[in-house]
């Protein structure tokens, strides 16, 4: 039985009328529950690949199927993202005027849940990242590590099948970064969620089950 949650064939993406080839024929399979690191230098196409998997951008050519949905054919990309994907960005990207709890509730607006249910689910996730005592604070009063933990809770609150993390420790000091990586790996294991992480730091990449090296829009090495 095919256990791949992500299947990509000859995926191409270019910008500026084809002058910039961000992805130049990617072939990749990722199994359900896997932790995969995508590594490469700046401009190699690793973030573009992550955006394609998360349906933030559409493919130029090729085939990409994620969680059983052919992303080149569906028009319901928002619905796909809402149900299947959780994003963790380098910058936490929290909404400054909302409390920690309200920030975590944000992805649930499209899930047609009651306010009580939204609150219950957000609280559950905030407990799992040890922030239950900060739920009524705004992000401006939190440390960098705490903000990223809120972002992780937000990424998991809609029970996605895949977490896509783009340099999640890039803006943190090494100690806080290690703590965030451990948390992400633990949550990935506990919730059996597929984790795809873009990084350019080898020690971060080495934590994954598998490393994919990208250069000039192509996969050059699969470990």
């Amino acid at each position: 039985m095919n256990n791949n949650i992500i299947e990509i064939r000859n995926l191409k993406k270019s910008y500026d009328n084809g002058k910039i080839k961000a992805l130049n024929g990617i072939d990749l399979d990722i199994k359900k529950g896997e932790f995969v690191s995508i590594m490469g230098p700046s401009g190699s196409g690793k973030s573009t690949l992550l955006n394609m998997i998360g349906a933030l951008d559409v493919a130029g050519e090729g085939f990409i199927k994620v969680a059983g949905i052919d992303l080149t054919k569906t028009s319901k990309l928002n619905e796909f993202r809402s149900k299947e994907i959780g994003f963790v960005f380098q910058m936490h990207n929290l909404i400054p005027n909302l409390t920690v709890l309200e920030n975590v509730e944000i992805p649930l607006y499209e899930a047609n849940l009651s306010s009580e249910e939204m609150r219950k689910r957000a609280l559950e996730l905030l407990k799992s990242v040890n922030l239950e005592d900060k739920i009524n604070q705004t992000p401006t009063k939190l440390s960098g590590g705490e903000r990223q933990r809120v972002a992780i809770a937000r990424a998991l609150v809609n029970h996605p099948s895949i977490i896509l993390a783009d340099e999640p420790t890039g803006s943190l000091d090494s100690k806080t970064g290690d703590m965030i990586l451990k948390l992400m790996r633990d949550l990935h294991q506990q919730k059996n969620v597929t984790l795809v992480m873009v990084t350019h730091e080898p020690y971060v990449g080495n934590l994954a089950d598998r490393i994919i090296n990208v250069l000039d829009g192509k996969i050059i090495k699969l470990n």
Binding site: R81, F87, P107, E110
Partner: peptide, 16 residues
């Protein structure tokens, strides 16, 4: 703008 990008990333529809 970035915040709206996040809202789209977490699945908010254009209509919302």
């Amino acid at each position: 703008t970035r915040e709206i990008g996040v809202l789209k990333a977490v699945g908010w529809k254009d209509r919302r």
